[in-house]
């Protein structure tokens, strides 16, 4: 019997836009997952402690404030430092495509902007958990490409 996946949805930094994160949390619940939302304004340390204590398999980070370039790699690095390299990290929000390559290189496996359908997120998750190289510990490497 398949168990639901445990997923943390996090809002790091000072960003106060939480609509998107809540929409995503709901969509993932409706797709059969168990979603833990951190609430606003968490530090990278608080976020990874939540992932650790809740034994989440995936971590979704939402950022609309422009701080993704700093925060996302910090979170990936902190996960690796804490021996949590098997956690799969993905993200979304307002993130210009020019900023994507360094985030993928840091270990983020997918980025989703405004208008993303829940089908696509769910498909990414199903694909990522099947792979053995999707954990953030694998660093740069595979990332989601919708046309695949």
């Amino acid at each position: 019997m398949d168990q639901p996946l445990r997923i943390v949805i996090a809002k790091p930094g000072l960003d106060g836009h939480d609509r998107g994160a809540k929409v995503v949390a709901r969509a993932l619940r409706d797709a059969g997952h168990e979603v833990i939302y951190t609430g606003l304004r968490r530090t990278p340390e608080q976020i990874i402690e939540t992932v650790r204590d809740e034994d989440a398999v995936l971590l979704g980070i939402s950022s609309l404030s422009g701080a993704h370039g700093h925060l996302f790699p910090r979170i990936c690095e902190t996960l690796r430092e804490h021996n949590m390299g098997d956690v799969i990290v993905f993200g979304g929000g307002i993130i210009p495509e020019d900023d994507w390559p360094p985030l993928f290189a840091a270990g983020v496996r997918a980025l989703f902007g405004p208008g993303t359908t829940s089908e696509e997120m769910v498909e990414f998750i199903a694909t990522a958990v099947q792979r053995d190289d999707a954990g953030v510990g694998h660093g740069a490497g595979w990332h989601w490409n919708p046309s695949e």
């Binding site: 993932l28 797709a31 939302y37 204590d53 809740e54």
Partner: peptide, 30 residues
């Protein structure tokens, strides 16, 4: 759907308290 939104954690400031968090473990359960 079998899924769940585990929302109690959002209310728990104690798990983010630098000193007290060592003495608290919180786990959300569906």
């Amino acid at each position: 759907s079998g899924g769940a939104l585990l929302g109690d954690r959002v209310r728990m400031s104690v798990v983010d308290d630098d000193i007290k968090k060592k003495s608290v473990y919180l786990r959300s359960v569906a």
